[in-house]
Design a protein around this nucleic acid. Structure first.
Length: 354
DNA sequence: AACACGGGGTT
DNA sequence: AACCCAGTGTT
């Protein structure tokens, strides 16, 4: 028998005493199920995103779109504005797509099985397991990055956690020890343990761990070597010029393409490289051009180094899919990604001062 | 299996 | 600067 057999009882006890109160989380130990819609929205927001980053977005999102029906009917631009700054914007589009699946092909009934949930857009193996267990009490594991790290260390498993085969093996091992009474608490406890105690980067708080007495990595002093994970690819760097084009008390925004990076969001016109040629190409006649600072933004796979030019436009006409945005529009209508946040102050001052 | 896809916190 | 986060979809 392996170390995981000894885990459920001390883990659940630890969770009852140490779980954070979260807006989508049923009271730990209460054996009450989570609300499916609330749990679902939270799980999508939490994909590759920390709890602290999600909290405010979650509250605003639930206030604006309190039901599956409201989500299914929301305008895409409003949806993007609610998601602005959270990243991985396809999550939001898939969320709406799935809401339409539920109100449509599911006849308005929220899927209540692992397989049914897995069929929803944006719901993969992890999320299906999380919702099935937390909202419906199904005894299926939810294997995320936290859980992979915890299982790797407790069992001393040296399998590469980036490999599907490893995820499958650890999922099966968890399935076998999962308590039938409260699978939702068990899954959340595993993740909570990974987030609060069994920390990455070789700095786990083993003295506070309910598995400390039987954890293999701790006993063998291998917490610094586990989990095993293939290193991620290096980023490429792009140098771009961002054009802050002003006209009166407005600034030019253009919509990004519908696919790819930051799809469908709004941005200040920008171009790899730079110079003044792009302005001509866009049909912008500049009254004045002035460098107004630099910005850097790091994506997971790209690094943008940006230099900004403030342009006073003499012409009012703009290319297709561009708009003149005023302060109110920037604040409440157009979803502009964080990559351009470093220019917000400059833009605001210009629109203010004019 | 490899890659695209954001943004930010921690070490 | 590296790591990684309550991962999923596409190629």
């Amino acid at each position: 028998m392996n170390e995981l057999d000894r885990l459920p009882i001390p883990l659940l006890e630890w969770y009852r005493d140490n779980a954070r109160a979260l807006p989508w989380r049923p009271a730990p130990g209460s054996r009450t199920l989570g609300d499916p819609y609330r749990v679902w929205v939270s799980e999508i927001m939490l994909q590759q995103t920390r709890v602290a980053a999600v909290l405010d977005y979650y509250q605003r999102f639930m206030a604006a779109l309190p039901t599956v029906e409201a989500l299914a009917a929301v305008e895409e631009d409003r949806l993007m504005k609610l998601w602005q700054g959270l990243g991985y914007y396809n999550r939001a589009r898939n969320l709406r797509k799935a809401a339409q699946q539920i109100t449509g092909e599911c006849g308005g009934r929220f899927p209540d099985t692992y397989e049914g949930l897995l069929a929803l857009a944006g719901v993969g193996e992890y999320t299906a397991g999380a919702i099935a267990s937390i909202a419906f009490g199904a005894p299926v594991p939810a294997v995320d990055g936290n859980v992979l790290r915890v299982v790797s260390r407790i069992t001393g498993d040296e399998g590469d956690i980036a490999r599907p085969e490893t995820k499958k093996r650890m999922g099966s091992a968890l399935q076998a020890v999962m308590p039938r009474q409260d699978p939702g608490d068990f899954n959340q406890a595993m993740m909570e343990l990974g987030a609060m105690v069994c920390l990455p980067n070789g700095a786990p708080r083993c003295e506070a761990c309910p598995a400390g007495g039987f954890c293999r990595a701790r006993r063998e002093e291998r917490t610094g070597q586990l989990p095993v994970k293939t290193a991620q690819k290096a980023r490429r760097t792009e140098r771009r010029t961002v054009y802050l084009i002003f006209h009166g008390d407005t600034v030019a925004l253009r919509r990004r393409p519908g696919r790819g990076l930051l799809a469908g969001l709004w941005e200040y016109p920008n171009q790899a490289g730079g110079g003044l040629e792009p302005l001509t190409q866009w049909g912008i006649v500049p009254r004045s051009v002035e460098p107004v600072g630099v910005g850097k933004h790091v994506f997971s796979h790209i690094e943008w180094h940006m230099g900004a030019l403030a342009v006073e436009a003499a012409e009012v006409s703009l290319p297709e899919d561009w708009v003149w945005a005023d302060q109110a529009g920037l604040r409440s209508t157009y979803a502009v990604p964080s990559a351009f946040q470093s220019f917000a102050k400059t833009v605001e001052q210009r629109l203010q001062g004019e």
